[in-house]
């Protein structure tokens, strides 16, 4: 196979990484944007989505596609409910203090990871893809499931954009993000908004975990890589900026695909981390973020 087919393959792999990363990072960005909470437990919610998908596909009988669809619904819902409880039980009591919530979500990350280790075990466990067709290109065949993940991400992110910009719930979220005190003076129950956004952000991470698990296998520490990459994406894109998150996810994902294919995956992380350092020095608000108000 010549250079260009390999390059095309690298781009396709990068697109899949970008799709999963965009969904995960969108949740992280949403939580920070609205609540100003740096959610270190986000990676654990990603992992729980994958682990939840393993439980559903292992114990629920039925046609693989339907069972996987059930996993796509049930796992994010359960993770969102767990996150909602964590918000009420922990974050709200800390008054959403930026410093305290970082420590609290680090604790939550360890609790969830160790919980998964206890109940799920230390082994990586595979989840079969809901379908196994391959798309045959002149140079190589490619997984139809991986392309379906890209399509699902595009649809999901389009729905997310519409929800944020065109619905009453989105208006409430953006008003709360802009000025929570004044939002309360206009009848918005910001406590409910915060709990809902934290749950929704966790649900997005879990959904990304479900989508990725037929490609990567479920493992109790699998959330740490996506957590780091999500932070890289939201810092480069601009914390709280959905548009910036999507652009940065595409850039990092495609770079990941190409650099991993031609050099090594570790080099991707080194370069991405360097890029974050440059962004923090020269444009701390990120490429699409606005400066501090």
């Amino acid at each position: 196979m010549g250079f260009w087919p390999i390059f095309l393959l690298a781009l396709m792999e990068g697109l899949v990484s970008a799709a999963v990363l965009a969904i995960t990072a969108a949740g992280l960005s949403l939580v920070f944007g609205v609540m100003r909470v740096v959610n270190v437990a986000h990676g654990a919610f990603f992992m729980l989505g994958a682990v939840g998908a393993w439980f559903v596909t292992t114990y629920v009988p039925g046609p693989p596609a339907l069972v996987f669809l059930a996993a796509m619904i049930l796992a994010p819902l359960c993770v969102a409910a767990l996150a909602g409880l964590a918000d009420i039980a922990v974050l709200k009591r800390l008054n959403y203090s930026p410093d305290a919530t970082i420590v609290a979500t680090i604790g939550l990350l360890y609790i969830l990871e160790q919980g998964a280790l206890s109940f799920f075990g230390p082994s990586a466990r595979p989840v079969p893809a809901p379908f196994s067709f391959r798309i045959q290109l002149p140079w190589f065949g490619y997984s139809g499931y991986k392309l379906a993940v890209v399509v699902a991400a595009v649809v999901l992110l389009a729905v997310l954009w519409l929800m944020i910009n065109r619905t009453k719930a989105g208006l409430v979220m953006r008003a709360t993000q802009s000025d929570p005190e004044i939002a309360r003076a206009f009848g918005i129950n910001t406590d409910k908004v915060y709990a809902g956004v934290f749950a929704f952000g966790a649900g997005l991470a879990a959904l990304a975990g479900v989508l990725v698990v037929p490609i990567q296998q479920a493992y109790y520490l699998m959330g740490e890589g996506p957590l780091l990459m999500s932070f890289i994406v939201v810092i480069i894109g601009g914390l709280g900026s959905l548009r910036g998150t999507l652009v940065a996810a595409l850039f990092i994902g495609l770079s990941d695909g190409v650099i991993s294919m031609f050099f090594s995956p570790t080099l991707t992380e080194i370069l991405a981390t360097l890029l974050v350092a440059f962004v923090l020095i020269f444009r701390p608000q990120g490429l699409f973020g606005r400066g501090a108000a």
Binding site: L171, A175, S178, D179, A183, A293
Partner: peptide, 21 residues
Amino acid sequence: PQGRRLFAELTVAENLGVGLL
């Protein structure tokens, strides 16, 4: 409020929309 404290990134229509919620 003092200093107006509008929802700065929202449009005029959206600011009124918040008032109408």
